[in-house]
């Protein structure tokens, strides 16, 4: 089974080499989608042995993930993994997320920071932002999952073919979940550990996500 890991990256020169070396043992190919970084992210990724796709202009994480998905499907990948470039996920947990798919239990595995494993989340993120994100997902899409904003996910080829990320920015997390439910794909949540180096998304980003979701609903 061909496993391709997609890592969207924007100015991640500090972490990208380490992330690639940690992910490499678990996949067949690593694809870094460089979203027009102004630092050496692309060169470092290439030197570390990853396939680098370069956006000529900055388009956002959602756009980078879809570019990666398109590439992986072109290369006939059986398993497509989404992984962050900021070294906050544990690459050792990739097999845990692949297992539900290879065993046939699910078509999509979603990493969750709120199941059994303990992730050190900032208090405001745990107590305010995540409950709000869950509420938005329930109101907009009737989705009930423990972690609505996790960027660690694994798709089977069939599932990836049914997903088309249209939200270029951070609203892609909710959009992906919506499409998974709309296409009635079998989903399994898998506990993951996240080590926070930085806070991640700001509170104001939440409002931008809601605005993007609304606009996308209107223009679709």
């Amino acid at each position: 089974m061909k496993k391709i890991c997609i890592i969207p990256a924007y100015n991640e020169a500090e972490h990208i080499t380490e992330v690639i070396s940690r992910v490499r043992p678990f996949v067949d190919e690593i694809v870094v989608v460089d979203d027009c970084s102004s630092d050496d992210t692309a060169q470092l990724a290439q030197a570390a042995g990853a396939t680098v796709l370069k956006h000529p202009i900055n388009r956002g994480q959602g756009a980078a993930l879809q570019t990666g998905n398109d590439y992986a499907l072109l290369k006939n990948a059986d398993i497509i993994i989404h992984f962050d470039a900021d070294n906050q996920f544990c690459a050792e947990e990739i097999p845990d997320l692949i297992l539900p798919i290879t065993s046939g239990r699910a078509q999509v595995a979603l990493g969750s920071r709120f199941l059994t494993k303990k992730s050190k989340l900032p208090a405001s993120k745990k107590n305010i932002i995540m409950p709000l994100a869950r509420l938005v997902n329930r109101l907009f899409f009737n989705i009930k999952l423990s972690d609505p904003q996790s960027g660690f996910r694994v798709f089977s080829k069939e599932a990836a073919q049914k997903i088309e990320i249209k939200n270029d920015g951070m609203a892609h997390c909710s959009e992906i979940l919506h499409q998974l439910f709309k296409n009635k794909l079998k989903i399994e949540e898998v506990p993951i550990t996240v080590v926070y180096h930085e806070f991640g998304q700001k509170f104001s980003s939440g409002f931008k996500i809601i605005k993007d979701l609304l606009i996308r609903k209107i223009i679709k």
Binding site: I57, A63, T67, I215, I219
Partner: peptide
């Protein structure tokens, strides 16, 4: 205007994606 900008944005992404994929291919 906001809606047409969003559509323009989406077209821009398609072009950026095509360039990235064409280059690597």
């Amino acid at each position: 205007l906001r809606l047409s900008l969003a559509k323009l944005d989406s077209n821009l992404t398609e072009i950026a994606r095509k360039i990235a994929l064409d280059k690597v291919n």
